[in-house]
């Protein structure tokens, strides 16, 4: 773990003890990234500002429950921001996808391929996404970064919504299989 990550972890632990100075430092170090995440998902600057405010209020309250053992500090923070922003957009445009109508996953979707070793995590996930069909990999990226719903993805790729859900579920299973190789 590099110095910055170590510092951020330390800051979160301090915030968990009610340290307001550490809270300000944590905000200064991480708010541009979390603001970027909120803007990409909400697509509205002023809404993203409100969301960012709520996100850091949650960070302050949840910091005492942060356990460095089961999470990385950045993924913990990013998850709070993404969850908050996605909750907003999902509640705004609820879509309904019937889980029973999606096709079952089969083991055929999990063919092992070449080992991906000696790569950074970022390059590794790119490599694993490259093993998927381009459209499915793009759909996963779009869902993560832009917060697209199944409805939006199905419009974008012009496939029925249930097919889109099957695509993504298979894609994610394959991605996990590749990342754990």
């Amino acid at each position: 773990m590099n110095t910055t990550l170590k510092n951020i972890e330390q800051m979160i632990l301090q915030v968990g003890l009610g340290d307001r100075v550490a809270f300000r430092s944590l905000y200064q170090a991480t708010s541009p990234k979390l603001f970027g995440i909120c803007i990409r998902i909400l697509k509205d600057r002023s809404e993203a500002e409100d969301a960012l405010q709520e996100v850091y209020i949650k960070v302050w309250r949840a910091a005492s429950k942060f356990a460095s053992l089961d999470s990385s500090p950045i993924s913990w923070l990013a998850a709070i921001a993404r969850n908050h922003a996605i909750d907003i957009v999902r509640a705004r445009r609820p879509d309904v996808v019937d889980i029973d109508a999606t096709e079952e996953l089969t083991d055929d979707d999990l063919d092992p391929e070449q080992r991906a070793i000696g790569m950074s995590e970022g390059r590794r996930i790119e490599r694993c996404l490259d093993e998927l069909e381009a459209a499915r990999a793009d759909a996963i990226r779009g869902a993560y970064i832009e917060g697209f719903s199944y409805q939006e993805l199905s419009d974008r790729y012009d496939v029925p919504i249930n097919t889109m859900r099957t695509w993504l579920r298979r894609g994610l299973a394959k991605l996990r299989e590749c990342l754990e190789r």
Binding site: E49, S72, E126, R176
Partner: peptide, 24 residues
């Protein structure tokens, strides 16, 4: 969350306005 985090690498950080922290 850890598995998918690298996807956030391509999200550009954007400095939020001062007022946000004041409100927090």
């Amino acid at each position: 969350e850890v598995r998918l985090l690298p996807l956030a690498d391509e999200i550009t950080p954007i400095e939020p306005p001062e007022t946000v922290y004041e409100n927090i």
